[in-house]
């Protein structure tokens, strides 16, 4: 067990899988000579050469599609988007091709590809660089969507994603790269579709993924001072979703707050809320609460940006509403 950064965990996962399987390669903007825009691929060009660490020009649709074509005939590409905001110009390849070729070919061709990169707001980078697009991808059958919150999850899930025979949209937390966590040594894989209890508690269930897990853990710490014990459930993957784990927790606590950094309308939290009411109606002691960002494009000014995103105090307030401690 070593404490390493989320960034280093991702780097280790890719290196280990590339050592293991010669069909795995990384393609993306600045992944090689620049060592990655966020330094996730640091040092990998030196180890694996230009044949397997491929700097692409600015052509997301082109290189995402090259990844899909290469995957079709047996390679296992890792396509890095400098940020997931840029995946929108490649979404035709992800949604129309990667997600559908297995079905369109009636199982003759499968697409073992990972689309990875940072998503969610960073700090003051404006509306076009601050989007949380997981709900877009989670909508699409044929894709898997993974959003790790810790270094340990990042490594174990990325290794699994690379070995998966399906297209995996692997969205990293842009502000989590420096976060650290204890990561088990060696070839430890985390299954896609299995959530994790990040904090046990008996009074209320908080469901959150990626960066919002950290916000919920901070809120739980604050609430514990008032004797309120929150259980923080991190599904880790949105598609497939570990509904059982969430249901088990809410059945125990009787209350649920879903926290996401994305927009409210048709956000993934709405699907979680649907699953919770469907499976836990008798157990619920209060309406399900959602905490999301404001329904606006992200503003630039720091004070406005903070106001738009879910903060610890927003989670605390939602928990108190669900406990009928505040209106």
């Amino acid at each position: 067990m070593a404490v390493i950064s989320y960034r280093e965990a991702l780097n280790q996962a890719m290196r280990e899988e590339m050592e293991r399987d010669a069909n795995v390669f990384v393609m993306g903007e600045e992944v090689g000579h620049y060592n990655g825009a966020y330094k996730v691929t640091q040092g990998m060009l030196q180890r694996f050469s230009e044949r397997r660490i491929i700097d692409a020009p600015i052509a997301e649709m082109g290189f995402a599609g090259i990844g899909v074509g290469a995957a079709m005939v047996g390679l296992r590409p890792i396509i890095e988007f400098m940020t997931f905001n840029f995946s929108l110009v490649a979404i035709d390849q992800i949604v129309n091709n990667a997600a559908k070729i297995y079905q369109m070919s009636a199982g003759q061709f499968h697409i073992p590809i990972v689309f990875r990169g940072p998503g969610g707001p960073a700090v003051q980078v404006g509306s076009q660089h601050s989007q949380s697009l997981e709900s877009f991808y989670a909508h699409v059958p044929g894709l898997k969507v993974v959003m790790p919150s810790t270094a340990a999850d990042a490594k174990g899930l990325l290794k699994t994603a690379i070995r998966d025979d399906n297209p995996v949209v692997f969205i990293e937390g842009e502000t989590l790269y420096n976060s650290t966590w204890e990561v088990p040594d060696g070839d430890v894989l985390i299954p896609i579709g299995k959530g994790d209890i990040k904090r046990a508690g008996s009074d209320i269930t908080l469901v959150a993924w990626s960066k919002m897990v950290w916000t919920c853990l901070d809120a739980a710490k604050e609430l514990a001072k008032d004797g309120i014990e929150c259980e923080v459930v991190d599904p880790r993957t949105l598609r497939p979703l570990d509904v059982d784990l969430i249901v088990e927790s809410v059945t125990k606590t009787g209350r649920c707050v879903i926290v996401e950094i994305g927009w409210p309308v048709a956000g993934f939290g709405a699907e979680v809320a649907y699953q919770v009411q469907k499976h836990c109606l008798d157990a619920l002691d209060a309406p399900i609460e959602r905490v999301t960002s404001e329904d606006v494009p992200m503003p630039y000014a720091k004070n406005l940006e903070d106001e738009v995103q879910p903060q610890v105090h927003d989670v605390v307030a939602a928990v108190k509403r669900a406990l009928y401690l505040e209106a």
């Binding site: 649709m61 899909v68 074509g69 290469a70 079709m72 390679l75 390849q93």
Partner: peptide
């Protein structure tokens, strides 16, 4: 791009 991808492989 898919055709370019098969050729890449």
């Amino acid at each position: 791009p898919i055709a370019a991808g098969a050729a890449f492989a």
